[in-house]
């Protein structure tokens, strides 16, 4: 054998099998139950939204890479598919086609590629697009449908989401308003109005368990975010349950479960240390409830995560892991 055929490369010579694309595709895989739940509850129109978002995101990514002269095969890493899918799951089920297309282009081009691509974006791309759409096209982005499962024969009827009903009650001085009638089991299974992918807590948790098991997300951000929502909303509920919704209402409605497990956990835009991740999660939870209780929008998950994304560099600057040898031989005994 020829000696010059030996491969010389730097150590370590063995590496774990985890890769960026494995992580991205696993998150896509974990979102399948929630995607199916959304399509089942809201019909084929929801499928159209999801497919349009995903394909537009992929095409935008390819174009962006081409324009910047980068390797185009990187689109196979699953990150663009994931961004498109997440955006689709964050849209109202009856969104017109141009909402999906505009949103996906914004997510990839402005949310991610202008910063230099995956790894350099400070904000979660799908959330950048969702908030962009919400501010620019408030009518289309708040036209919700009540559940009308496939094969049930029920037609799409517009109606308020539980959080929308809650805000209406607050603004009209009727306390909880229609939100008081929410069946929590319906909210857990997904038999409520809302964005395509956020309605079924059960389906979202199924995927989240898979991601936790694989180690692609850790409990720190979702648990601290949900715990903050639970405690903060619980304090107000204990004081005046006629005016404030219960903690379980806040946890099971809106985009909290989707946001906590799939968006706030985005590696690129959340802190790298576990201590920082706990702070990040608590911040997301508090801001969510502040916006839901006193803000101009009924839902605050997207805004809260984006705001905490902005704080991530600061958290990472000041929160450091405990460092070996930092103490001057504290134990000192054998």
């Amino acid at each position: 054998m020829e000696e010059n055929e030996l491969i010389v490369s730097p150590w370590p010579h063995i590496r774990s099998e985890v890769s960026v694309s494995k992580i991205m595709w696993s998150v896509v895989f974990a979102l399948i139950p929630a995607t199916f739940a959304g399509i089942y509850i809201f019909g084929y129109k929801a499928l159209e939204v999801v497919l349009l978002c995903t394909s537009t995101a992929l095409i935008s990514e390819a174009l962006a890479l081409k324009v910047m002269g980068k390797d185009i095969t990187i689109i196979s890493d699953g990150s663009a598919v994931l961004t498109g899918l997440l955006l689709g799951l964050n849209l109202p089920p009856g969104s017109p086609w141009w909402i999906s297309v505009t949103g996906s282009v914004v997510a990839i081009a402005i949310g991610k590629q202008v910063y230099g691509g995956l790894g350099f974006n400070p904000f979660n791309p799908a959330l950048v697009a969702r908030v962009f759409l919400l501010i620019s096209f408030p009518v289309e982005m708040t036209r919700w449908e009540l559940p009308h499962p496939i094969l049930s024969g029920v037609d799409a009827v517009s109606g308020a989401t539980p959080l929308g009903a809650l805000q209406m009650g607050r603004l009209t001085g009727k306390g909880l308003g229609d939100a008081a009638n929410l069946n929590l089991m319906d909210a857990f299974i997904g038999n409520i109005g809302g964005s395509i992918g956020e309605i079924s807590a059960a389906a979202l948790l199924l995927g989240a368990i898979y991601l936790l098991y694989k180690g692609y997300i850790t409990w720190h951000i979702p648990v601290s975010m949900i715990a903050a929502v639970f405690i903060f909303s619980g304090i107000f509920w204990v004081i005046d349950p006629a005016r404030y919704a219960s903690p379980s209402f806040h946890i099971l409605t809106g985009g909290l479960i989707l946001g906590a497990f799939y968006m706030a956990t985005d590696m690129v835009t959340s802190p790298i240390t576990t201590k920082g991740q706990l702070m990040f999660g608590i911040g997301c939870g508090l801001l969510t409830i502040i916006i839901r209780m006193w803000g101009g929008y009924p839902e605050g998950v997207s805004f809260s995560i984006l705001l905490m994304n902005a704080l991530t560099p600061l958290i990472d600057k000041y929160v450091r892991p405990s460092h070996f040898g930092a103490k001057k031989d504290a134990a000192g005994t054998i």
Partner: peptide
């Protein structure tokens, strides 16, 4: 490729 800030190295 670029660091995705997953924090696995920190752990």
């Amino acid at each position: 490729r670029a660091c995705i800030r997953c924090g696995m190295c920190v752990k």
